[in-house]
Amino acid sequence: METLLLWLVVAVALGFDYVNGFHDAANSIATIVSTRVLSPRWAVVWAATFNFVAFLVFGTHVADTIAKDVVLQDVLSIGVIFSGLVGAISLNLITFFLGLPTSSSHALVGGMAGAAVAKAGTHVLVVEGIRKIAVFIVLSPLLGLALAFVVFTVVMWVFHRSKKVDRLNRGFRRLQLVSAAAYSIGHGANDAQKTMGIILALLIAAGHLPKGADVPLWVVLAAHTAIAAGTLSGGWRIVKTMGSKITRLQPVGGFAAESAAAATLFFVSASGIPVSTTHTITGSIIGVGTAHRVSAVRWGVAGRVVWAWVLTIPIAAAIAAATYAVVAAF
């Protein structure tokens, strides 16, 4: 019975990864769609391919952080992880239908923390690990914003005397394919690893793996396949918010935003820090907007997004805690 439950929760975790890819497909492709470099259909194929390729580039540091640095491993059980996943998936679906680009990662961290606290109290939280994740909630968009501003300004400065604007735009449209691919690798590396971390925690909790074990290869492949499949299914509501409602982008702006976000994601993934890929690309798009002028950014939309960020962890934690209360009753 327990084995059946274990595989059921593994399936739910992979379902979360699928929803994550579906939810965040917009981030990978919003700029290439809004600058008309690729049609939406080809854009999702492009993004999904590089989501999958990510496992060849990065290790599993982020997965280790999720499995070991959010809550104490002793408290993890199939019920806790299932409840955490329910909290994260519910919030993802709610914000998807509201068209808000919130963070699947923070929903997951909030869900895990909420369910673990409901089971055993606040002392099971790993303060150091959660603090590192919390600090990078703020730092990752700031990093993306600064990098995008600098990249965009340098590119504009280098090419400002060029009178062949059409040729320049064509060149940057091609370069955007490279930057979108790099961003998709970063997205796959950071977001797929969160699911790997969840499955690793689950296998350790169920006694299938010893404490401190590495992520098995089948988990790595399954997580990347699920996120790529989710991206392939694509979600269009958030594409609109990301691609045009925050600030309007030209190919050069899209290239700068994606390159900056990709560089940020490469750095945090290599450092084992789970961040929100949504926050990072939003910061980068705002960076390009502020390089034009501050009024080019629609701050109302950006503010709505910030509110969604602030509420993600507490709401996911509350749903997960309520779910755990129901699970524990059985």
Binding site: E128, R131, K132, A134, V135, F136, L139, L142, L143, A146, V150, S271, I273
Partner: peptide, 17 residues
Amino acid sequence: ATDTQHRWVCLALAVVY
């Protein structure tokens, strides 16, 4: 609030901004 390994990120960002 940042762990010592990543404090340089805060410092670099503060200087750049």
